[in-house]
Nucleic acid binder design. Structure first.
Lengths: 196, 196
DNA sequence: TCGAGTGATGTCAGTTGCTGACATCACTCA
DNA sequence: TGAGTGATGTCAGCAACTGACATCACTCGA
């Protein structure tokens, strides 16, 4: 609303920079202040000094804001799988992927805050799961590139994100002090032990 | 609309029976005729001779119509896990669950039709995934009841639905002639082999 | 230097999913 | 027979999106 009455002086730029970043920051603030469901797209846009319509030009939907890093995470994972030594087993290649993404999980407070928002809303959990599912698919694809056949590639991809999900959940759990890598290797060992 | 002008004769019942069933049938027809996204809740309700408001009294949302059988599937699975012999290993208990749900997958045409609808819409895939995730959670719970500790229970639960998902996908894939049980056991064997 | 794009934004109107509040009325049962 | 009860209808309204079109600082080639 306020944006509508701004008059541009000669030395003003037409638009403040980094609209997308401003929207993300405004959203995180509002989500933590009043909750995801209770925050409207219009409110986010207003706090960022933009319009609701512009909001939807930057993000396909309200949920998508929380998953901005997803493509990078995916890239990190598949690069590690693809880049594993040629003589590495499929299991070892996937382990390399699971290790590589640990670079992503450094700021525990940030991850906890984000996860608290996701855990508070079912539609966000759905979105999180489909991101995981896509990740599983591309992992399976990377494995196929390494010569792994179906259905082994898909099953291993699914198992990998299962391990990842469990370990990540433990990592952000309240009270946890252990690192992601340690927790992940523990879950991986459990998988290995229990399927043997 | 038309329901609004119906006058009830003495020998008419006030409401036609099985509203929920009529809604489900109308929905399946419309979804296959014109697609999920292109079908509105009002259209489904109208074909069932009901109101949009009544539609939402029977189903939490439009997506939920496709997942009516989910609770039964879940029950089938956990009962099999819980009912496995006391000396069965966790892996064997989960295998029993994966076998038990094969009773659910008999009508291949029906499953294919349903899956085609789900595959056509991202929000339906999200809903499907959260159902799988819930299933994974209750499996992990059933395993814990059997004395399996964390994170092994959760990891095995995740791996189980991974196997299930892959096998089910192969079963409904066009051209497939093999049975669910066979495909499932193959995937299970792959998981076992590849994590060893 | 000027005029034709270009692109990020704004404006507006509309559809759909979904919800709360309240009314209706055949049916049940004390 | 009269007081519920429960499945439904009616109505109003919000929030998530979407398409069509306008704006206008900025860029760049003639």
């Amino acid at each position: 609303m306020s944006a509508a009455v701004i008059k541009y002086d000669h030395d003003m730029v037409r638009w403040q920079p980094d609209s997308r970043g401003r929207l993300e920051q405004a959203a995180m603030e509002l989500f933590t202040e009043r909750g995801f469901e209770q925050t409207t797209a219009a409110q986010i846009a207003e706090r960022a000094g933009l319009t609701e319509r512009t909001f939807f030009r930057h993000f396909a939907d309200k949920r998508e804001m929380l998953f901005d890093g997803s493509p990078r995470l995916q890239q990190l994972f598949v690069d590690a799988v693809a880049g594993a030594p040629a003589d590495a087993s499929p299991f070892e290649a996937v382990t390399a992927g699971l290790d590589a993404v640990s670079a992503f999980f450094v700021d525990l407070d940030h991850s906890r805050g984000r996860q608290a928002i996701i855990d508070s809303d079912a539609s966000l959990q759905e979105r999180e799961l489909i991101k995981m599912s896509r990740l599983s698919s591309v992992i399976a694809g990377a494995l196929r590139e390494r010569g792994v056949t179906e259905p082994a590639a898909s099953v291993l991809g699914q198992a990998a994100i299962g391990v990842f999900h469990v370990a990540f959940g433990q990592w952000v759990a309240p009270g946890n002090t252990r690192g992601y890598a340690e927790l992940m290797h523990e879950s991986l060992a459990e998988l290995r032990a229990i399927t043997a």
